[in-house]
């Protein structure tokens, strides 16, 4: 569903993403892990067509994001990590607006809005301005907006931030259900337990480069990790030994 070829993004002399290639097959839930500043968000924003790569190609469902952006983006639902939405629109108006961006309107959209708000327990807030929503409610509204046009692919940056346990569980179920019906999810996260429990495949990015990619079993065998969990594997691959020194610092 997503094919990334030799993707590079530079900000001046700083290389945020360095010549990465990745293939995300349809019907998979793909986890994208990495420490802070590793290049996860930059990669996701390039996939969503928000940032332009310095070099390299991205294809979504066979459509090149640079050459045929409309067709590529029509398949996509993007959920950013910082939920900035129009404060002076109501939840329903925001969803209607997003559906309009994908060329959809009418009764089908209205029904879909009601369904999504119901699922995310926002029905009673439907006609209230977004400025009165809490952080978690905004996040739920944005997730709804990414689903409003029935995308084939969801690209999501840190989905669990700000969600209460009920909503987090709901989202996990939703992603699994979406994938089981043939959809694809490409998700960056810091929550390794979620990645381990949820994802079919995982890629780890460090310093702008992919340092490991594959299923959990493949990662373990590639790195002779034996029977360790994702957290230990992650720390080993991303130079997380420093974390172990934390205890010493705290106790000093």
């Amino acid at each position: 569903m997503i094919t990334i070829e030799k993707l590079t993004k530079k900000y001046g002399s700083f290389t945020a993403v360095d010549d990465i290639s990745l293939h995300v097959p349809s019907g998979t839930l793909y986890g994208f892990l990495g420490p802070n500043g590793a290049g996860k968000t930059t990669t996701l924003r390039m996939i969503a067509g928000i940032l332009r790569p310095t070099s390299g190609r991205i294809r979504l469902g066979g459509h090149d994001v640079a050459d045929n952006p409309m067709a590529a983006k029509a398949k996509l639902g993007f959920i950013p990590d910082r939920p900035f939405v129009y404060e002076k629109l109501t939840g329903a108006e925001f969803l209607r607006f997003v559906a309009g961006l994908y060329g959809q309107d009418g009764q089908l959209v209205e029904r879909r809005i009601d369904e999504l708000l119901e699922v995310f327990e926002l029905s009673t807030w439907k006609n209230e301005l977004v400025e009165s929503y809490s952080h978690g409610m905004r996040q739920k509204l944005i997730i709804s907006s990414a689903l409003i046009h029935r995308p084939e692919l969801i690209v999501v940056d840190e989905p669990m931030v700000g969600l209460d346990p009920r909503a987090a569980r709901l989202l996990k179920d939703l992603f699994r259900g979406f994938v089981s019906r043939g959809g694809t999810v490409f998700m960056s996260t810091h929550t390794l337990e979620i990645a381990e429990a949820l994802c079919d495949r995982i890629a780890i990015i460090q310093g702008g480069k992919i340092v490991a990619a594959g299923t959990m079993a493949e990662l373990k065998s590639q790195h002779a990790a034996g029977d360790v969990g994702l957290e230990d594997l992650f720390l080993r691959l991303t130079g997380g030994e420093a974390a172990k020194e934390l205890q010493a610092v705290l106790e000093a």
């Binding site: 969503a48 928000i50 409309m70 029509a74 950013p80 129009y86 961006l101 994908y102």
Partner: peptide
């Protein structure tokens, strides 16, 4: 500006 993520990731020209 702050909502550009939405406009740029949608197929809106």
């Amino acid at each position: 500006g702050r909502q550009m993520w939405l406009l740029r990731s949608s197929p809106l020209e």
